[in-house]
């Protein structure tokens, strides 16, 4: 199953010649997160989501994206955060992992930032384990920190939880 949007480039490998990398930023509970731009397929506004009973708690449900069924992941729940109070206006970032589409539900989606590779820092050892699992590292921005999400791990560990 492929769509015209699928790229041959592996997520996270979109390094520019000058050593910088582009990230789509998003916020959950005020925290800034980033996903490599090339792994992002779509950015969606609030969607009609079908609940999936018996699914792991972080699976919010499934939605129809132009005829494809996309599994919606509640990133909040995945990161062990309390449910947001304005879930009606949630936005989502759709990523493609091994041909399957997942919609990561976040509070808001921001801009695309180009980050120099040398601004990259490994996870601090004190980081919450749930976060450490899914964080590929941290970028220091002016005034705030950008946590880079490792989409594969984010979803893979979900599977483990489910199993």
């Amino acid at each position: 199953m492929t769509t015209e949007l699928e790229t041959e480039v592996e997520p996270g490998k979109a390094a520019h010649a000058n050593g910088s990398e582009d990230f789509v930023t998003m916020t959950i509970s005020g925290q800034l997160f980033g996903i490599p731009v090339l792994s992002v397929q779509d950015v969606l506004g609030p969607q009609k989501i079908t609940r999936i009973p018996l699914a792991p708690p972080e699976v919010a449900g499934a939605l129809n994206l132009r005829g494809r069924i996309v599994t919606a992941i509640d990133v909040r729940s995945r990161l062990g955060l309390a449910p947001g109070n304005d879930s009606a206006n949630n936005m989502s970032v759709v990523v493609d992992v091994d041909g399957e589409l997942y919609s990561l539900m976040v509070d808001a989606v921001g801009e695309v930032l180009s980050m120099p590779a040398d601004a990259y820092q490994p996870n601090p050892p004190t980081l919450d384990t749930a976060w450490r699992d899914v964080s590929a590292g941290i970028f220091q921005l002016d005034g705030q920190l950008l946590v880079v999400l490792d989409v594969n791990r984010l979803l893979a560990s979900t599977e483990r939880t489910a199993a």
């Binding site: 699914a55 792991p56 499934a62 599994t71 997942y102 979803l155 599977e159």
Partner: peptide, 8 residues
């Protein structure tokens, strides 16, 4: 269904 739901 998505792989993560196949156990259901």
């Amino acid at each position: 269904v998505a792989p993560m739901l196949r156990d259901i």
